[in-house]
Design a protein around this nucleic acid. Structure first.
Length: 155
DNA sequence: GCCAACGTTGGC
DNA sequence: GCCAACGTTGGC
């Protein structure tokens, strides 16, 4: 899952109550359908920082609540307000809850991914890939954690 | 700041 | 249903 650290970083997630936050604000159908149809409680998540000095996978998380209505779409004061949802009378969008699991001791940046046989195939490495949620294969998952060395979060 | 690659919108 | 115009994302 991608996030701009200026908007919501892995540290922000760790500092949230119970290290858990809702993944609000997804306004793309593919990403929405992915959350709605694929995500199960307990599924592993790699947390990726985008649009920053060094875009990298920075931590491991997991899905801690199944998809439910993202009602920020109905809140006119929210940056994620969606007029069409308002007109419909219900939110078109969903979100899941995500809980931080581990830090990566070594952040896995794009050079590391591009240099790695397994990781250069990751969806997030494809040119023009803007989807904020993309699937990761078991081999890619293991490789990221091996390179990054997952480490329990302190405190 | 540039620009490629998308997704969305809206006129027809 | 087509497609041009437009807006956004995001690496570099």
């Amino acid at each position: 899952m991608k996030s701009e650290p200026d908007v919501f970083s892995f540290s922000d997630l760790k500092n949230s109550p119970k290290m858990t936050a809702c993944w609000e604000g997804v306004r793309n159908y593919q990403a929405r359908n992915f959350m709605r149809d694929q995500f199960q409680v307990g599924d592993g998540v790699l947390f990726y920082h985008s649009s920053t000095e060094e875009p990298s996978i920075v931590g491991q998380a997991r899905v801690s609540r199944k998809a439910y209505d993202d009602n920020t779409a109905l809140d006119e004061k929210s940056p994620y307000f969606d007029a069409k949802s308002k007109a419909l009378g219900c939110s078109r969008w969903v979100m899941v809850d995500v809980t931080a699991v581990c830090d990566l001791v070594t952040l896995v940046n794009r050079k590391m991914m591009a240099d790695d046989k397994v990781l250069r195939g990751m969806k997030v490495m494809q040119k023009g890939m803007r989807l904020s949620i993309t699937p990761v294969s078991p081999a890619q998952w293991q490789r990221v954690l091996a390179l990054g060395v997952a480490k329990a979060i302190k405190g």
